[in-house]
């Protein structure tokens, strides 16, 4: 697992039917499996379709996706056979993943992944305990039914279930939606910790303040293609209205002030620094 490459990937839902829909129209994207990449774009831009290609839930209609040595291609001859290998390396956490718990105890639910990939009960138990520790669920919860946990705890449990398999790349679809601000911050700090330990993160989110605070790289998805990539500061300094996106409030502030005669650069993420620059700008 080193580099993930999307090479002219097209994907069509329900081809040759009345529901025919071209979701991806030639996606070119490459990133390292140690990146913290955010995919942003308005509803229906193709973000979710892209991430479902990362563990071959979807296979390109044309073009190919290379995930390290694994090839997911429209060309059956080029397609890798070891799907289990890919599924172990790439962990996908869906939106509202808390609704996907199904075992009668928390520990069994988290053990399901490792067991499914052939681990012994003892080995699976060890991995589950480690994953639950990582997401901050204490031992006294292990024998509880997932339904006795709060919504936020259930979401952590679902994430533990994915982490227990030991993925090298963690793919997250709107992991903070529906959480209160403190809950969202805790959740993102957890992913930051996981990333610092060497696991790559691909994050789909609508929250540009989260992108600014956590992602190292951003790809803007628009109409089934990648419209631009760059660091958060690079992307947020551009006009994002054509893509139906709203900038983080710091950048909106800079845009408004620049429209009224200031010439602030887009490098301020810290409000004290921004305030100083505003004071300087006001004098001139």
């Amino acid at each position: 697992m080193a580099v993930i490459v999307f090479d002219q990937v097209c994907f069509t839902y329900s081809p040759k039917s009345p529901f025919h829909s071209d979701a991806l129209k030639g996606v070119d994207l490459s990133f390292s499996s140690t990146d913290f990449l955010a995919l942003v774009g308005h509803t229906g831009s193709g973000k979710s379709t892209i991430i479902e290609h990362l563990n071959a839930l979807l296979v390109p209609t044309s073009g190919e996706v290379r995930i390290g040595e694994y090839i997911s291609s429209s060309n059956k001859k080029r397609r890798s056979k070891k799907l289990g290998y890919l599924r172990r390396k790439v962990g996908l956490v869906f939106q509202f993943s808390e609704n996907q718990l199904f075992e009668d105890t928390l520990i069994k639910d988290v053990m399901f992944g490792p067991r499914n990939f052939g681990d012994s009960p003892e080995a699976a138990h060890l991995k589950a305990v480690e994953a639950l520790g990582e997401v901050g669920l204490p031992e006294e919860y292990y024998e509880r039914s997932p339904f006795e946990l709060s919504g936020g705890e259930r979401r952590r449990a679902a994430i533990a279930g994915v982490l227990a398999v030991g993925p090298k790349l963690l793919v997250l679809d709107e992991p903070t939606s529906g959480l209160d601000p403190e809950g969202a911050r805790e959740m993102m700090d957890l992913f930051k910790k996981i990333h610092e330990r060497g696991t790559g993160i691909v994050l789909v989110t609508h929250d540009m303040d989260i992108v600014l605070g956590y992602a190292k790289k951003v790809a803007v998805v628009d109409n089934g293609k990648i419209a631009m990539t760059g660091t958060p500061a690079e992307v947020f300094s551009k006009d994002l209205k054509p893509y139906g996106l709203e900038k983080p409030l710091v950048y909106q502030t800079i845009d408004i002030l620049n429209a009224h005669g200031y010439s602030l650069s887009y490098q301020y993420e810290n409000l004290d620094d921004l305030a100083k620059a505003i004071k300087e700008g006001k004098k001139q």
């Binding site: 409030l249 710091v250 409000l271 921004l274 305030a275 004071k279 006001k282």
Partner: peptide, 14 residues
């Protein structure tokens, strides 16, 4: 956000 920005500016007398 505007309150956080406002208190950062207030420290500088704005």
């Amino acid at each position: 956000f505007v309150y956080r920005l406002s208190s950062a500016l207030k420290k500088l007398g704005i």
